[in-house]
Structures are given as structure tokens and as C-alpha cells.
């Protein structure tokens, strides 16, 4: 039986990313899971690739889904944009079961993409990719003046920080006052 399985997997190279993996380890058939982001586009990812993400790994290790169940219940990540999730999935596939290189140069160069990617990666707990991303973010301000850094990272000035703090205090004070007023009203 195992021989037929091996035969089918090598004869059907429909998924180029999974073919070498199943050839290398024929005993355990690769299981797949499905994820989708905000745009509802579903990505099929192997469990081996998903191991990079501590979050998903923790979820699937307790589930024991069959192929059909997995297909019927894709993991929804509503807080991650479709293209960002695509990037993450691609990275996980590329680095499946491989030791990760010390540098990763394929990260997006645009600020906003990188920003979203860091948030997504942090949420999915992909430690190595997070390290690369953080390096990349740090590189953005290398040799920049404080004002340039402020623009790149949108850091508020001291005055803005103070104003925000005052605002927050005011709001908290109002809420507290409202609560006490409500409580007084209840008592009456």
C-alpha cells in the first residue's frame, strides 16, 4: 500500500512545493491546512511549513483534523491583509524544514507593507521572520537625523505626547464622573 502511495505522490507533481517533501519522507503523508486573511482568499499550506508559526502550530497540534475537516474549516485571520498573508505563507513554504539563513533580503522595501508584515508575523509568532523584519525596520533609520527618524516612524513630539496624555486623563475623569453620576442615579 505504501508503494502505491509513493507512486501517486511522485506521479502527481501538481503542487511543486510539496513534492520534494513527500518524496523525502514517504511514510508520513503530508497533511495540509487552510488559512485565509481579510480578503477571504484561501491558501493551502502544509503542516511542515506552518510549524514556523508558533500560534498555528499550537492550534493544529491539538485538532487532529482529517483532510476534509481541514478543508471545510480554514483558519480565519481577519486582522491580516490578503497580500501580507500571501507573503507569510510564501516565506513559510520557502523555509520549510530548512535552517534559516542569517540574512533575508526578500523582505518588502515599502514602509507600510513592512509595518503590516511585522504586525502579522508577531501575531502569528514566527520568530525567525520577526527577527529579520525587525532588523529591516532598524535599518530604515540608520544614519538618519532625529527629525528624519520621527518622520519615518511617526514618533509624536513631546508636546503631542503631553496633549495625548492630558486628553486621556480628561476622558478617564469624565468616565469616572459619569459612572459616579450613574451610580448616584441608581441609588435614588
Amino acid at each position: 500500500m505504501s508503494s502505491t502511495e509513493q507512486g501517486t505522490s511522485s506521479a502527481a507533481p501538481a503542487e511543486p512545493t510539496t513534492a520534494p517533501e513527500s518524496a523525502a519522507a514517504p511514510e508520513v503523508p503530508e497533511s495540509f491546512y487552510y488559512v485565509h486573511g481579510k480578503d477571504k482568499v484561501v491558501h493551502k499550506v502544509s503542516a511542515g511549513a506552518l510549524q514556523h508559526s508558533a500560534l498555528i502550530h499550537g492550534m493544529i497540534s491539538n485538532l487532529g483534523y482529517t483532510e476534509e475537516q481541514a478543508k471545510a474549516n480554514p483558519f480565519p485571520f481577519e486582522n491580516i491583509d490578503g497580500d501580507i498573508l500571501q507573503m507569510v505563507v510564501d516565506w513559510c513554504n520557502q523555509h520549510k524544514g530548512k535552517p534559516t539563513p542569517p540574512e533575508d533580503t526578500n523582505l518588502p522595501k515599502q514602509k507600510e507593507k513592512l509595518f503590516d508584515l511585522v504586525l502579522a508575523v508577531n501575531y502569528l509568532e514566527i520568530k525567525e521572520l520577526l527577527t529579520y523584519c525587525c532588523k529591516q525596520v532598524a535599518m530604515m533609520v540608520k544614519g538618519k537625523s532625529p527629525e528624519e527618524i520621527r518622520e519615518i516612524w511617526m514618533i509624536p513630539t513631546d508636546a503631542e505626547d503631553e496633549a495625548a496624555e492630558k486628553e486621556a486623563k480628561k476622558r478617564a475623569g469624565k468616565e469616572a464622573a459619569g459612572e459616579t453620576a450613574a451610580a448616584a442615579g441608581d441609588a435614588k
Binding site: 535599518m139 538618519k144 532625529p146 520621527r150 514618533i155 509624536p156 513631546d158 505626547d161
Partner: peptide, 16 residues
């Protein structure tokens, strides 16, 4: 991941 010289400059951006 930032160099000390960059951290030095960053420290002037805001008190926070």
C-alpha cells in the same frame, strides 16, 4: 538591532 550611534540620535526624538 540598532547601532549605538543611531540609538544616541533616536534618544533625541522625544522624551518618551
Amino acid at each position: 538591532n540598532m547601532e549605538y550611534s543611531d540609538l544616541f540620535l533616536l534618544s533625541f526624538v522625544s522624551k518618551r
